[in-house]
């Protein structure tokens, strides 16, 4: 635990020592604001809720979270600091978790800083704030899912651009796993129960109810196990590829 905190603090410090965190936060705020008001028509809808805000989060995360995740391990391998890190008395698992949490918290900070939208909607009407809080939690969980994929892919390569692109593609597949586009493609040649399994892996399916403020334990378990799975794979890949 102590080691995880040490890694977490170092990593978070380096996000804010470089422009990474600031750029991420500013872009996230601008984009989420723009989508909410222009695409989501928050005002014109005349309803006091934040679904126009949350419904675009999956698409925002699709590009922004891989941008945060790509450097997690690729940079460490490229600069050789991985040799330092891996010869300190810290286990690989602790490093993986510490780094992941630091990046996740940066995203969390960006999410918290969207509070003016929440204030606006409370000013305009009387939204159900419990629903909004649940949607925030759901959004944060989903960001964690994207990030765990990004962290794992980042460990496979020294090249951050490659890490970014592959992560976007995988996240895109996870997003759309429940959509007709993907399902029709599979339906033609694999059994229905596997198609259903693929569909149940979809980020969107699990996020939609969370974004409505319905905290279904199954959705939470889905995202938590997704994060666990990718971070576990991340640990194995770091072990395998650290010295290449």
């Amino acid at each position: 635990m102590r080691n995880i905190i040490t890694i977490f603090k170092r990593e978070l410090g380096s996000y804010f020592a470089t422009p990474v965190a600031y750029v991420f936060i500013v872009i996230f705020l601008i984009m989420s604001g723009a989508m909410t008001f222009y695409l989501g028509n928050l005002y014109e809808r005349g309803q006091a809720d934040l679904s126009p805000f949350f419904q675009y989060h999956p698409w925002l995360y699709l590009f922004l979270v891989p941008a945060i995740g790509m450097r997690l391990w690729a940079e460490e391998r490229k600069s050789g600091t991985i040799e330092l890190l891996m010869t300190l008395p810290i286990s690989v698992g602790q490093s993986v978790i510490g780094k992941f949490l630091a990046a996740w918290v940066s995203i969390g900070i960006a999410l918290v800083l969207t509070f003016p939208i929440w204030i606006t909607i409370n000013y305009l009407g009387e939204p159900d704030n419990g629903v909004i809080l649940a949607a925030y939690l759901g959004s944060f969980l989903m960001a964690g899912g994207f990030l765990a994929i990004g962290s794992c892919i980042s460990a496979m390569t020294k090249n951050q651009v490659i890490a970014f692109i592959i992560t976007v593609v995988i996240c895109f597949l996870f997003l759309l796993a429940g959509s007709p586009l993907v399902l029709n493609f599979f339906k033609a040649w694999i059994p229905q129960n596997i198609v259903d399994a693929i569909s149940s892996l979809s980020f969107l399916t699990h996020f939609v109810s969370l974004a409505k403020g319905v905290i279904d334990l199954r959705d939470v378990i889905y995202f938590v196990s997704l994060i666990g799975f990718w971070l576990y794979a991340n640990t194995i890949i770091v072990e395998m590829k650290k010295a290449d």
Binding site: K9, R10, S14, S79, G80, L84, L88, P89, I90
Partner: peptide
Amino acid sequence: IGYLPEGAPSYGEMTPVQFLEFITQVRQ
């Protein structure tokens, strides 16, 4: 073990004070 890897890699964005503080924490 104390180890100086070839090329002495360290975290570029940190200052020596911050870096040594990190190592201090790791070494407890």
